[in-house]
Design a protein around this nucleic acid. Structure first.
Lengths: 166, 166
DNA sequence: CCTGTTTGCTTCGAATGTGAAGCACCTAGC
DNA sequence: GCTAGGTGCTTCACATTCGAAGCAAACAGG
C-alpha cells in the first residue's frame, strides 16, 4: 500500500487486512443482532458471556477489562449499566478490600440464553457458511496460537502509571 | 458457554473467540503505535490507507464508510478532522452534485509513510511472529474467502431509511 | 508502626461514535 | 417540467469511550 518501503509481503498484508475486515464486518452484524434480541451492546454481551463461563459467575473488574480488551473506566461504566439493568451485581472483593467482584445474576443468564441462538445463527451465516470443516479447524489453531502469543505480553492494565507531577 | 443449547461446536466457538480476541488485541496495540507515531486513530489510518490505495487517491464518502465499516455520520466527523489537519481534501463529486469526493493530500501520504514502518513492526511482533509462512498463507486464503462472502451481502449503507412519520 | 509506593477502582472532562432527522440533488413516472 | 420518492451527506442530540487524576486499601522498608 502506498509503495510500502520494500521488504513487505503481500500475503502478510492480505492476511492482516482480511482479518481486520472480517472482524469489523462480523462485529457489526453481531451488534445488530444483539441489540435487537436483547438490547445488548457487544461489550455487554462479552462481559456477560465471560461471567457466565467463570466459576461462581464472578470476576474482578481488572480481569474482565483485560479479558475483553477494554479500558478500566469504560468497564466501570458498563458494569454500572449492567447492574442497573439487574444483569450483574457488584460487591467488594473478599480477599482485597480495594477490589470489586462482578457476578452475573440469573436474569443475566436468562438474557444470555435468550440472545445466544440468534448469535450462533449470525455466526453460521456470515463466518462459517463459506468454510469447510477443515478451514475452521485451521482457523481455530492458527488464531489460537496468535492469541496465546499476544496474551503472553503484559496486559493492558499493566501500563505504567504516570507519576504525580512535582 | 453457559450451556449453549446443544448443536454447537467447540471448534467453531474456539475459532470465533480467537478471532475476536486477536483482532481486539491487535487493534489495541496498533492504535497505540499509530497514536505515538503520527497522532492517528485507527480509523484515520484506515481511511488514509484506503485513499492511498485508490486510483487518483480519491473515494466517495459512502464507499469509504462501507470500506472501513463505519457510520456515515462518523465518517463525516473523521473527514472533517483529517481535512483540518491537511491530510485530505473534500470536494463535491463531478458526476453527482450530492456526493463528496475525498482525496488524500501529499501531506497525507507523507503521514502514511511516516507511520507505516512502525505499523509493520507491530504486526510482525504480535501477529506474524508465532506463525509459519504456511500459516499466513492459509490465514489469508480462509479469511479472504470469508471476507468475500460477507462483502457479498448488502453493505451498511444499504440499510432501509425510515419513512418520514405520518 | 510509619511513610512512600503500588494497585484497584471510580470520577471527571473531553473526544468520538451512533441513528434519526434534515437538506439538497438526482431519478422516475406521468 | 412537475411531483414523489430515493440517495448522499451533514447536523443534531445523546451514548459511549478513553486517559488522567483522585481516592482508598495493600504492601515494602525501615
Amino acid at each position: 500500500m502506498v509503495n510500502p518501503p520494500r521488504s513487505f509481503d503481500p500475503t502478510e498484508l492480505g492476511a492482516y487486512f482480511a482479518l481486520i475486515e472480517v472482524s469489523s464486518l462480523l462485529r457489526h452484524a453481531v451488534e445488530q443482532q444483539l441489540h435487537e434480541a436483547g438490547n445488548l451492546s457487544y461489550v455487554q454481551f462479552q462481559l456477560l458471556a465471560r461471567l457466565g463461563d467463570s466459576p461462581e459467575g464472578s470476576c474482578r473488574m481488572t480481569d474482565l477489562a483485560d479479558g475483553v480488551v477494554y479500558s478500566r473506566s469504560g468497564l466501570t461504566y458498563q458494569a454500572q449499566t449492567l447492574e442497573q439493568r439487574g444483569l450483574v451485581t457488584r460487591a467488594p472483593s473478599i480477599d482485597d478490600e480495594r477490589g470489586t467482584t462482578v457476578t452475573i445474576t440469573s436474569q443475566g443468564r436468562d438474557t444470555l440464553t435468550q440472545v445466544f441462538p440468534g448469535h450462533i445463527a449470525v455466526l453460521n451465516e456470515l463466518l462459517f457458511e463459506p468454510l469447510a470443516r477443515e478451514d475452521v479447524e485451521v482457523l481455530a489453531d492458527v488464531l489460537g496460537r496468535v492469541r496465546d502469543h499476544m496474551r503472553s505480553a503484559p496486559p493492558r492494565s499493566a501500563a505504567p502509571r504516570r507519576r504525580k507531577a512535582g
